[in-house]
């Protein structure tokens, strides 16, 4: 379990804009520690965003996505009060789900 995500979903006209800020190290597997040992890769691999159980975006990520990943997109529909659920799974099998309402 990582730290909570920040999710902001705003209804704009007939669309909903979703912005997500996740809290994750996104270790690339390229860096070395002070002893010169390679720090193993540790990163979010799969992200799924749903609006009331309908998938509105799914993504697969590699190590090149920045630390504390940011994601933003828009989808058609979505009304105030709809539930936006964001789930990620990382390369250690850890997973986290957070929910926000469209405002």
């Amino acid at each position: 379990m990582g730290d909570p995500m920040k999710i902001r979903a705003t209804a704009v006209g007939d669309s909903t804009e979703v912005k997500v800020l996740m809290s994750h190290e996104m270790e690339s597997g390229q860096r070395k520690d002070a002893q010169g040992q390679t720090i193993p890769a540790w990163f979010i691999q799969v992200v799924t965003v749903t609006c009331n159980d309908k998938t509105v975006l799914s993504a697969q990520w590699g190590t090149a996505v920045s630390k504390n990943p940011f994601l933003s997109f828009k989808f058609k529909g979505g009304a105030k009060g709809d539930k936006i659920t964001v789930t990620w799974t990382d390369s250690r099998g850890d997973t986290r789900t957070d929910v926000a309402s469209v405002t």
């Binding site: 697969q60 990520w61 940011f70 997109f73």
Partner: peptide, 30 residues
């Protein structure tokens, strides 16, 4: 998103279902 000089060039793949605008933004490492 593919970055040609990165150790692993493929950065991310986003699946865009019908109804979602084909426009995404994120942040990557280069």
């Amino acid at each position: 998103i593919v970055i040609d000089k990165n150790p692993n060039p493929l950065a991310a793949v986003f699946d865009v279902p019908a109804g979602t605008e084909p426009a995404i933004s994120t942040r990557v490492k280069m």
